[in-house]
Amino acid sequence: MSSHTATSTQPLSTPIVLTIAGSDSGGGAGIQADIKAISATGSFACSAITAITAQNTLGVSAIFPIPLEHIEKQLDAVFTDLNVIAVKVGMLADTDIIKVVAAKIKQYNPQFVVIDPVMVATSGDMLLKESAVATLKSVLFPLADLITPNLPEGAALTGMSVPQDELDMEKMIGQLRDLNVNAVLLKGGHLEANQNSNDLLIFPDEVHSLSAKRIATKNTHGTGCTLSSAIASYLAQGNDLIQSVKLGKRYISEAIAHADELSIGQGHGPVNHFYDGHLAVR
Protein backbone atom coordinates (compact mmCIF):
# COMPACT_ATOMS: atom_id res chain seq x y z
CA MET A 1 0.00 0.00 0.00
CA SER A 2 1.51 3.28 -1.08
CA SER A 3 1.36 6.39 1.00
CA HIS A 4 1.94 10.05 0.35
CA THR A 5 2.42 13.13 2.47
CA ALA A 6 -0.30 15.76 2.18
CA THR A 7 0.98 19.27 1.63
CA SER A 8 -0.99 22.40 2.36
CA THR A 9 -0.84 25.22 -0.17
CA GLN A 10 -1.55 28.86 0.46
CA PRO A 11 -4.31 30.02 -1.89
CA LEU A 12 -3.32 32.74 -4.32
CA SER A 13 -4.63 36.21 -3.53
CA THR A 14 -7.77 36.80 -5.59
CA PRO A 15 -7.91 40.18 -7.37
CA ILE A 16 -11.23 41.68 -6.25
CA VAL A 17 -12.93 44.51 -8.14
CA LEU A 18 -15.94 46.44 -6.85
CA THR A 19 -18.29 48.04 -9.36
CA ILE A 20 -20.47 50.92 -8.12
CA ALA A 21 -23.06 51.59 -10.79
CA GLY A 22 -26.65 51.25 -11.97
CA SER A 23 -28.38 48.01 -12.90
CA ASP A 24 -29.38 47.30 -16.51
CA SER A 25 -32.34 44.93 -16.59
CA GLY A 26 -31.48 44.06 -20.20
CA GLY A 27 -28.09 42.72 -19.10
CA GLY A 28 -25.96 44.58 -21.65
CA ALA A 29 -24.63 47.54 -19.68
CA GLY A 30 -24.28 48.79 -16.11
CA ILE A 31 -23.64 46.41 -13.23
CA GLN A 32 -24.41 43.38 -15.39
CA ALA A 33 -21.83 44.30 -18.04
CA ASP A 34 -19.32 45.21 -15.34
CA ILE A 35 -19.57 41.84 -13.61
CA LYS A 36 -19.22 40.00 -16.93
CA ALA A 37 -16.17 42.03 -17.98
CA ILE A 38 -14.44 41.70 -14.60
CA SER A 39 -15.10 37.96 -14.56
CA ALA A 40 -14.04 37.41 -18.17
CA THR A 41 -10.74 39.21 -17.58
CA GLY A 42 -9.87 37.08 -14.58
CA SER A 43 -10.89 38.98 -11.44
CA PHE A 44 -13.65 38.54 -8.86
CA ALA A 45 -16.52 41.02 -9.15
CA CYS A 46 -18.61 42.45 -6.34
CA SER A 47 -21.10 45.30 -6.61
CA ALA A 48 -22.97 48.19 -5.05
CA ILE A 49 -26.04 49.23 -7.03
CA THR A 50 -26.81 52.96 -7.18
CA ALA A 51 -29.94 52.86 -9.35
CA ILE A 52 -32.29 50.35 -10.93
CA THR A 53 -33.16 50.98 -14.56
CA ALA A 54 -35.93 49.52 -16.65
CA GLN A 55 -33.87 49.00 -19.78
CA ASN A 56 -33.38 46.82 -22.83
CA THR A 57 -31.60 47.00 -26.18
CA LEU A 58 -34.10 49.64 -27.36
CA GLY A 59 -33.55 52.14 -24.55
CA VAL A 60 -34.20 53.16 -20.95
CA SER A 61 -37.82 53.57 -19.84
CA ALA A 62 -37.37 54.24 -16.10
CA ILE A 63 -34.70 54.96 -13.49
CA PHE A 64 -35.12 54.39 -9.74
CA PRO A 65 -32.26 55.74 -7.59
CA ILE A 66 -31.40 53.52 -4.62
CA PRO A 67 -31.90 55.23 -1.22
CA LEU A 68 -28.66 56.73 0.11
CA GLU A 69 -28.68 54.68 3.31
CA HIS A 70 -28.81 51.45 1.34
CA ILE A 71 -25.97 52.52 -0.96
CA GLU A 72 -23.90 53.20 2.15
CA LYS A 73 -24.78 49.81 3.63
CA GLN A 74 -23.84 47.99 0.42
CA LEU A 75 -20.44 49.70 0.37
CA ASP A 76 -19.81 49.07 4.07
CA ALA A 77 -20.75 45.40 3.66
CA VAL A 78 -18.34 44.89 0.77
CA PHE A 79 -15.39 46.92 2.05
CA THR A 80 -15.45 45.54 5.60
CA ASP A 81 -15.25 41.93 4.41
CA LEU A 82 -13.60 41.77 0.99
CA ASN A 83 -10.09 42.88 0.07
CA VAL A 84 -11.16 45.24 -2.72
CA ILE A 85 -8.13 46.21 -4.81
CA ALA A 86 -9.83 48.26 -7.53
CA VAL A 87 -13.11 50.13 -7.80
CA LYS A 88 -14.96 50.98 -10.99
CA VAL A 89 -17.56 53.76 -10.68
CA GLY A 90 -20.30 54.08 -13.27
CA MET A 91 -23.78 55.61 -13.16
CA LEU A 92 -24.38 57.93 -10.19
CA ALA A 93 -27.84 59.42 -10.54
CA ASP A 94 -27.53 62.65 -8.53
CA THR A 95 -25.37 64.90 -6.35
CA ASP A 96 -26.18 63.15 -3.07
CA ILE A 97 -25.22 59.73 -4.43
CA ILE A 98 -21.95 61.14 -5.77
CA LYS A 99 -21.13 62.55 -2.32
CA VAL A 100 -21.91 59.27 -0.55
CA VAL A 101 -19.77 57.24 -2.96
CA ALA A 102 -16.89 59.71 -2.67
CA ALA A 103 -17.07 59.63 1.14
CA LYS A 104 -16.95 55.83 1.22
CA ILE A 105 -14.05 55.66 -1.23
CA LYS A 106 -12.16 58.11 0.99
CA GLN A 107 -13.03 56.07 4.08
CA TYR A 108 -11.87 52.72 2.71
CA ASN A 109 -9.16 53.99 0.35
CA PRO A 110 -8.95 51.22 -2.29
CA GLN A 111 -5.70 51.02 -4.25
CA PHE A 112 -7.24 51.92 -7.64
CA VAL A 113 -10.30 53.88 -8.74
CA VAL A 114 -11.54 54.02 -12.35
CA ILE A 115 -14.46 56.34 -13.10
CA ASP A 116 -16.66 56.03 -16.17
CA PRO A 117 -18.52 59.37 -16.04
CA VAL A 118 -21.95 58.28 -17.27
CA MET A 119 -23.39 61.69 -18.05
CA VAL A 120 -24.86 61.74 -21.56
CA ALA A 121 -27.45 59.39 -23.07
CA THR A 122 -27.00 57.95 -26.56
CA SER A 123 -29.70 60.42 -27.66
CA GLY A 124 -27.46 63.29 -26.52
CA ASP A 125 -29.64 64.13 -23.50
CA MET A 126 -27.82 64.97 -20.26
CA LEU A 127 -28.34 62.32 -17.57
CA LEU A 128 -26.86 64.50 -14.82
CA LYS A 129 -27.86 68.04 -13.82
CA GLU A 130 -25.15 70.70 -14.02
CA SER A 131 -24.88 70.79 -10.23
CA ALA A 132 -24.23 67.04 -10.18
CA VAL A 133 -21.57 67.37 -12.89
CA ALA A 134 -19.85 70.04 -10.79
CA THR A 135 -19.93 67.71 -7.75
CA LEU A 136 -18.55 64.86 -9.84
CA LYS A 137 -15.62 67.03 -10.90
CA SER A 138 -14.88 68.54 -7.49
CA VAL A 139 -15.59 65.64 -5.12
CA LEU A 140 -15.09 62.37 -6.98
CA PHE A 141 -12.57 63.01 -9.76
CA PRO A 142 -9.72 63.87 -7.33
CA LEU A 143 -9.99 60.28 -6.02
CA ALA A 144 -9.61 58.69 -9.46
CA ASP A 145 -6.59 57.04 -11.05
CA LEU A 146 -8.40 57.25 -14.39
CA ILE A 147 -11.59 58.70 -15.86
CA THR A 148 -12.90 57.34 -19.17
CA PRO A 149 -15.19 59.87 -20.91
CA ASN A 150 -16.47 59.38 -24.43
CA LEU A 151 -16.61 62.42 -26.72
CA PRO A 152 -20.02 63.80 -25.59
CA GLU A 153 -18.96 63.33 -21.97
CA GLY A 154 -15.63 65.04 -22.67
CA ALA A 155 -17.60 67.96 -24.11
CA ALA A 156 -19.87 68.11 -21.06
CA LEU A 157 -16.87 68.09 -18.72
CA THR A 158 -14.96 70.82 -20.55
CA GLY A 159 -17.73 73.04 -21.94
CA MET A 160 -16.35 72.49 -25.45
CA SER A 161 -18.21 71.23 -28.52
CA VAL A 162 -18.35 67.50 -29.15
CA PRO A 163 -15.25 66.64 -31.24
CA GLN A 164 -15.97 65.92 -34.90
CA ASP A 165 -12.51 64.60 -35.75
CA GLU A 166 -9.19 63.68 -34.16
CA LEU A 167 -7.92 67.25 -34.36
CA ASP A 168 -10.88 68.31 -32.20
CA MET A 169 -9.98 65.54 -29.75
CA GLU A 170 -6.46 66.89 -29.47
CA LYS A 171 -7.82 70.42 -28.86
CA MET A 172 -9.65 69.04 -25.82
CA ILE A 173 -6.46 67.76 -24.12
CA GLY A 174 -5.66 71.00 -22.29
CA GLN A 175 -9.18 71.39 -20.90
CA LEU A 176 -9.24 67.78 -19.73
CA ARG A 177 -5.90 68.28 -17.99
CA ASP A 178 -7.46 71.24 -16.20
CA LEU A 179 -9.80 68.77 -14.45
CA ASN A 180 -6.76 67.90 -12.30
CA VAL A 181 -7.20 64.14 -12.51
CA ASN A 182 -4.36 61.65 -12.59
CA ALA A 183 -5.21 60.47 -16.13
CA VAL A 184 -8.01 60.72 -18.70
CA LEU A 185 -8.86 58.17 -21.39
CA LEU A 186 -10.73 60.16 -24.05
CA LYS A 187 -12.51 57.57 -26.18
CA GLY A 188 -12.92 58.25 -29.89
CA GLY A 189 -15.53 55.61 -30.63
CA HIS A 190 -18.12 58.20 -31.67
CA LEU A 191 -16.03 59.25 -34.71
CA GLU A 192 -17.79 56.67 -36.85
CA ALA A 193 -16.32 57.94 -40.13
CA ASN A 194 -12.85 56.83 -39.02
CA GLN A 195 -11.55 53.41 -40.07
CA ASN A 196 -10.01 52.98 -36.64
CA SER A 197 -11.30 53.65 -33.14
CA ASN A 198 -8.64 55.92 -31.65
CA ASP A 199 -8.41 56.89 -27.98
CA LEU A 200 -6.13 59.34 -26.17
CA LEU A 201 -4.66 58.41 -22.79
CA ILE A 202 -3.87 61.81 -21.30
CA PHE A 203 -1.46 62.39 -18.42
CA PRO A 204 -0.34 65.79 -17.08
CA ASP A 205 2.92 65.59 -19.05
CA GLU A 206 2.34 63.11 -21.88
CA VAL A 207 -0.31 61.64 -24.19
CA HIS A 208 -0.51 58.05 -25.48
CA SER A 209 -2.56 57.25 -28.59
CA LEU A 210 -4.28 53.84 -28.71
CA SER A 211 -5.79 52.54 -31.91
CA ALA A 212 -7.94 49.56 -32.85
CA LYS A 213 -9.70 48.61 -36.07
CA ARG A 214 -13.31 49.83 -36.11
CA ILE A 215 -15.83 46.98 -36.26
CA ALA A 216 -19.02 47.40 -38.27
CA THR A 217 -21.78 46.27 -35.88
CA LYS A 218 -24.83 47.78 -34.20
CA ASN A 219 -24.19 45.64 -31.12
CA THR A 220 -22.23 48.09 -28.98
CA HIS A 221 -24.48 48.46 -25.95
CA GLY A 222 -22.42 48.68 -22.78
CA THR A 223 -19.02 49.29 -24.37
CA GLY A 224 -18.06 52.09 -21.95
CA CYS A 225 -19.08 50.06 -18.90
CA THR A 226 -17.21 47.05 -20.21
CA LEU A 227 -13.98 48.90 -21.02
CA SER A 228 -13.72 50.72 -17.70
CA SER A 229 -14.44 47.50 -15.78
CA ALA A 230 -11.80 45.60 -17.73
CA ILE A 231 -9.24 48.31 -17.00
CA ALA A 232 -10.07 48.13 -13.26
CA SER A 233 -9.73 44.34 -13.44
CA TYR A 234 -6.30 44.49 -15.02
CA LEU A 235 -5.18 47.09 -12.46
CA ALA A 236 -6.30 44.77 -9.67
CA GLN A 237 -4.11 42.04 -11.17
CA GLY A 238 -0.97 44.15 -10.80
CA ASN A 239 -0.62 45.75 -14.23
CA ASP A 240 0.36 49.42 -14.40
CA LEU A 241 -2.12 51.98 -15.72
CA ILE A 242 -0.83 52.17 -19.29
CA GLN A 243 -0.71 48.38 -19.65
CA SER A 244 -4.16 48.02 -18.05
CA VAL A 245 -5.63 50.48 -20.55
CA LYS A 246 -3.97 48.67 -23.46
CA LEU A 247 -5.25 45.29 -22.24
CA GLY A 248 -8.70 46.76 -21.63
CA LYS A 249 -8.86 48.21 -25.14
CA ARG A 250 -7.76 44.88 -26.61
CA TYR A 251 -10.48 43.11 -24.62
CA ILE A 252 -13.29 45.49 -25.63
CA SER A 253 -12.17 45.41 -29.27
CA GLU A 254 -12.43 41.61 -29.32
CA ALA A 255 -15.76 41.67 -27.46
CA ILE A 256 -17.13 44.05 -30.11
CA ALA A 257 -15.61 41.99 -32.95
CA HIS A 258 -17.48 38.92 -31.66
CA ALA A 259 -20.71 40.78 -30.79
CA ASP A 260 -22.59 39.58 -33.88
CA GLU A 261 -22.16 35.99 -32.74
CA LEU A 262 -24.90 36.84 -30.23
CA SER A 263 -28.52 37.54 -31.10
CA ILE A 264 -29.88 39.58 -28.19
CA GLY A 265 -32.86 41.91 -28.44
CA GLN A 266 -34.26 44.04 -31.25
CA GLY A 267 -32.07 47.13 -30.88
CA HIS A 268 -28.43 47.75 -30.03
CA GLY A 269 -27.34 44.44 -28.57
CA PRO A 270 -24.51 43.83 -26.11
CA VAL A 271 -20.89 43.00 -26.83
CA ASN A 272 -19.75 39.40 -26.42
CA HIS A 273 -18.06 39.48 -23.01
CA PHE A 274 -17.18 35.79 -22.97
CA TYR A 275 -15.95 35.48 -26.54
CA ASP A 276 -12.92 33.41 -25.58
CA GLY A 277 -13.46 31.92 -22.14
CA HIS A 278 -11.10 32.97 -19.38
CA LEU A 279 -8.90 35.86 -20.47
CA ALA A 280 -6.79 36.74 -17.44
CA VAL A 281 -3.48 38.35 -18.37
CA ARG A 282 -0.99 38.64 -15.52
Rank of each mutant, 00 (worst) to 15 (best):
G154I: 00
P110W: 04
V139C: 14
Q175F: 01
L82Y: 13
F274K: 14
S209N: 13
S43Y: 09
S228R: 00
N180F: 11
P142Q: 04
M169R: 00
I97D: 02
D240H: 12
A86Q: 05
A134I: 04
L136Q: 05
R282T: 15
S2L: 11
A54K: 04
G222S: 04
F203Y: 13
N56C: 06
Q74H: 07
F44A: 10
G30P: 01
I63V: 11
S61G: 08
S131E: 13
E261S: 10
G188I: 00
K249N: 07
L235C: 04
S47T: 10
F112R: 12
S244G: 06
E72M: 11
L279K: 11
R214E: 09
A102F: 10
D276Q: 14
A212D: 11
S228K: 00
I63D: 00
G27E: 01
D24H: 04
D94I: 05
T158V: 00
M169Y: 02
A232G: 04
K171E: 10
M160W: 05
G238F: 10
I264V: 15
G42C: 10
V84P: 00
T5E: 15
A257W: 03
N109V: 12
M126D: 10
G189I: 09
A280N: 15
L12I: 15
G27M: 02
G248L: 05
D205Y: 13
P11M: 05
T57R: 06
I85S: 12
N180T: 08
A102P: 11
H190R: 02
T223R: 01
E170N: 12
S23V: 09
D240R: 11
M1E: 13
N272E: 04
A257N: 09
D34W: 06
N83E: 13
K99D: 12
A86L: 07
N83H: 10
T19M: 09
T57K: 06
V162S: 01
Q237T: 13
Q111S: 12
H273K: 06
